[in-house]
Amino acid sequence: MLSKDKIQRINELSKKSKAEGLTLKEQKEQKKLREEYLQNVRQSFKNQLKSVKVVDDEGNDVTPDKLKKEKGQDGMTH
């Protein structure tokens, strides 16, 4: 999870960018922080998917094999 300070900094840079523009150094910082944020969101989403079990109307487990394999690699089988 991204720290509150980093999220606050992302927001500050965004506001400044819209209001007056950013220096080259600030643009690089913003890009780095955004990439870190997106990487964090993607990882969180992947972790959520690993806990999903797909069941059909008859109660059969129809979780895709690829997802089952991912669960097994992390030892998160259900």
Results as ranks from 00 to 15, higher is better:
D74N: 06
E20K: 14
R9N: 06
S3W: 03
V41H: 01
S3N: 04
L2W: 01
S17W: 10
Q43A: 10
S14F: 01
E29C: 03
R34I: 05
T23F: 00
R34E: 04
V54P: 00
K28L: 11
T77K: 01
V55L: 02
T63I: 03
V62N: 06
D5P: 04
K6R: 14
R9V: 06
K46M: 10
L67I: 07
H78S: 09
M76L: 08
Y37C: 01
D65N: 09
S14Q: 12
Q8W: 11
S51T: 12
K32Y: 01
H78W: 13
T77Q: 07
D57W: 00
I7M: 12
K18L: 15
A19E: 15
K25D: 10
T77V: 03
K71Y: 05
L38E: 14
N40S: 15
K32I: 06
E36C: 08
K18I: 13
E29A: 05
H78Q: 08
K71W: 03
Q48E: 13
L24T: 02
T63H: 02
G72C: 01
Q73A: 05
R42P: 00
K31P: 00
G21I: 06
E70F: 13
Q27W: 02
N11A: 02
M1V: 14
K71I: 03
Q30P: 03
D56H: 00
Q8A: 15
D57R: 01
L49F: 15
Q43E: 12
V52E: 09
L49Q: 14
E20R: 14
K25V: 10
E70R: 14
V41I: 10
L13C: 07
Q39D: 13
E70T: 11
H78Y: 09
E58L: 09
K66V: 13
G59Q: 07
L24A: 06
D74A: 11
L38Y: 11
L22K: 12
H78E: 06
K6S: 09
K15S: 10
E35Q: 07
K32S: 02
R42G: 01
K68F: 01
K46G: 02
Q30A: 15
E20N: 03
K68V: 11
L2Q: 12
V41D: 00
Y37W: 14
Q8D: 12
N47F: 10
D74I: 08
Y37F: 13
K31E: 02
N11S: 03
Q27C: 12
T23G: 05
K50L: 15
N60G: 03
E35R: 09
K50I: 15
Q39K: 15
Y37K: 08
L33Q: 02
K25W: 02
E35F: 03
R9I: 07
S17H: 15
R9A: 04
E12S: 01
K53A: 05
E12P: 03
K28G: 06
L38R: 15
S14M: 01
Q43F: 06
E36G: 09
Y37A: 00
L67H: 05
K28P: 08
K31L: 02
E36P: 07
D61N: 11
S14H: 03
K66S: 11
L38V: 06
L2C: 07
Q27Y: 12
S44C: 07
